Simulated scan of single mutants.
Amino acid sequence: MHRGLVHALAWTLATGAAVTLSWWGVHTVMSGTAYDPPLAVPLTTQPLSSSTHRAAAPPPGPATDAPSPSAASPSASPSPSASAAKPPPKAAPPSPGPDGGQGGGDPGRVKAYPVTGGRVVFDLGASSAELVSATPDAGWQMQVWKQPYWIRVTFTKAGREMSVFCTWNGHPPMVETYEG
């Protein structure tokens, strides 16, 4: 009887150690991939690139009390009632670089993809892409994964899953949707 209790205690300790080690490993990997959803920014009719969009200086003129898309931070977002009260400010086109181009980045185009469960907006350049915003519909959950050559946004609700993939590994950015 004493021997059986020793075996049960050893099995319990080994199982607890294995579960703890597994949880720690999964937690470490997952903590680097999931994050708060990005803020939505107003779309413009001018093509934007990620480098010129961030580096463009604000145009001279009267200041507005609404933040510009590049000045928005994840911790500060306007309330829905405040953003519905006045239209978003028009973004100024990026200033051309010294060679007449739009700086050193990929000139891109901002394109929205409305899908079941939400809406995803990408800035698609010639050889890369950047996530502009991802907004889930009411009741839907969202996860975003970013890697050097792809971005995945997944909306889930009650066992339904809708994924939007943007890939650009050796080819121009391509967006695909999958429902699972």
Rank of each mutant, 00 (worst) to 15 (best):
A8E: 09
W11L: 15
T20Y: 11
W23Q: 12
W24H: 12
H27Q: 12
T28V: 14
V29I: 10
M30E: 12
G32D: 06
A34S: 08
Y35S: 10
L39A: 13
V41A: 11
P42H: 11
T45S: 15
Q46H: 15
P47M: 09
S50Y: 13
T52W: 09
H53T: 04
A55E: 02
G61C: 00
P69T: 05
A71Q: 12
A71W: 05
S73H: 10
S75Q: 09
A76Q: 11
S77M: 09
S79M: 09
A85L: 08
P94M: 01
G97T: 08
P98R: 08
G104W: 13
D106E: 02
V110L: 07
A112L: 03
G117Q: 03
G118R: 05
G118W: 01
R119Y: 01
L124C: 06
A126W: 01
A126D: 05
S127P: 03
S127I: 06
S127C: 07
A129F: 07
V132Q: 06
V132W: 04
S133W: 02
S133E: 01
A134T: 09
D137Q: 08
D137P: 02
A138Y: 00
A138C: 02
W140V: 05
Q141Y: 05
M142K: 07
M142C: 10
Q143R: 14
Q147F: 12
P148H: 06
W150I: 07
I151M: 11
T154D: 03
T154M: 03
F155T: 01
F155V: 03
F155G: 00
T156K: 13
T156C: 06
E161Y: 02
C166V: 13
W168Y: 14
H171W: 05
H171M: 06
P172W: 02
P173H: 06
